[in-house]
Amino acid sequence: MTEILKMENICKSYFMGEEEFEVLHNVSLSIRSGEFLSLLGPSGSGKSTMMNITGCLDVPSSGKYYLSGNDIDGLNEVELAKIRNKEIGFVFQSFQLLPRMTALQNVELPLIYTGLSPSERKKRTKAILERVGLADKLNSLPNQLSGGQQQRVAIARAIVTEPTILLADEPTGALDQKTGIQVMELFEELNRDNRTIIMITHDQNIARHANRIVRILDGYLTEREEP
């Protein structure tokens, strides 16, 4: 399996007034295609920063980050936006669906920025929504859907562009346990279809659904083989 993500000695620091805080210390990570990895850590451990850097929303202070072989270092905002559109599919804790748009329109959103023709977009959007089991909810607004259904729409939106990595930030955080497990089952299914998934969570039980767990604590990554 090919390596699709590689981080080498990544540091990230923020300035709070005069003082400099280093949030990530020499983080190195390599992810191969088809892996389901969970990044496990308590709040304040630096996992949000990891997510931002992985998702190309932020750039590291030092170190190298390669995504699909591309060096992210030195890219400008427009190039980063294009990488995000092509390589990353985001799933957020609070779904982040646009309330005025139907499920169909929400899923279509990233394809608009890809530059596909409207008919092609419609075709792909429908197929993906069927894939996540929402074929009968195409024209529902987010507030007409349950939490689990909303997260399915969000997942459909994340994978509709066929991204290299599906990046999920606490995907079950706003769901009850039963629905959370259903969503995790969907992730497992997607992983069986050979999709690479990085899931950020603080919950051991959720992290266990992944086939590789990386722990983050105070900005240091540690990994041990799970039994």
């Binding site: 905002e77 427009v78 936006a81 294009k82 559109n85 920025y113 939106r157």
Partner: peptide, 11 residues
Amino acid sequence: LRKALGATPNR
């Protein structure tokens, strides 16, 4: 969100 989904600043 739009930016995360790949909207460029120009868009």
